[in-house]
């Protein structure tokens, strides 16, 4: 996001007052092997899903915290965005899905040998939630378990 001082007053106020959680510290899992030997998964909060899958909704309780599975081999033409937030540009992802969901860039990094391999499934949540309890208590752990089942080592997180 551009620096706060060049945003409009309503945007600046909205962002500064956003109920984001405040943590003292964070959990930490150390890297134990080089990235070139790791299996990487892509997890986004861009509100993407496979065409025909259930779109994200405007939930009454602070946001739709559910997730969608996007198989890695999905044709980009079959990936759409139903994020409910009003505050972001859509035209860039029309032109290039990699702008928030860098599927081609990750394939290139594997071809270059910089990443070991990629998971079979990627995951999409919808960001800009005002209530993250569903994410923390249910959907986040569910996705983490799926990633572990797929023997993923590293998760790349992208917002929109």
């Amino acid at each position: 996001m551009p620096k706060l001082e060049i945003l409009s007053e309503p945007q600046r106020e909205m962002l500064l007052n956003w109920p984001s959680p405040e943590n003292e510290d964070s959990p930490w899992t150390p890297m134990i092997k080089p990235l070139s030997e790791c299996k990487v998964a892509l997890v986004t909060t861009a509100g993407l899903h496979v065409r025909g899958d259930k779109p994200f909704t405007t939930a009454k309780n602070g946001g739709d915290a559910s997730f969608r599975v996007i198989p890695r081999v999905t044709d980009p033409a079959d990936i759409v965005q139903s994020h409910t937030s009003i505050g972001f540009d859509r035209t860039s992802i029309y032109k290039d899905i990699n702008i928030t969901f860098p599927i081609d860039r990750l394939n290139e990094l594997v071809a270059l040998g910089k990443i070991g391999s990629l998971s079979d499934n990627y995951y999409s949540f919808m960001g800009a939630l005002r209530n993250i309890s569903g994410l923390i208590d249910e959907y986040g752990p569910e996705v983490a378990k799926s990633l572990l089942d797929e023997q993923v080592d590293v998760v790349l997180l992208t917002p929109t």
Binding site: S26, T29, G140, L147, V154, V155, L156
Partner: peptide, 9 residues
């Protein structure tokens, strides 16, 4: 993710 043993960036 990290609590489950995954490395994230």
């Amino acid at each position: 993710m990290e609590e489950a043993g995954l490395v994230s960036t």
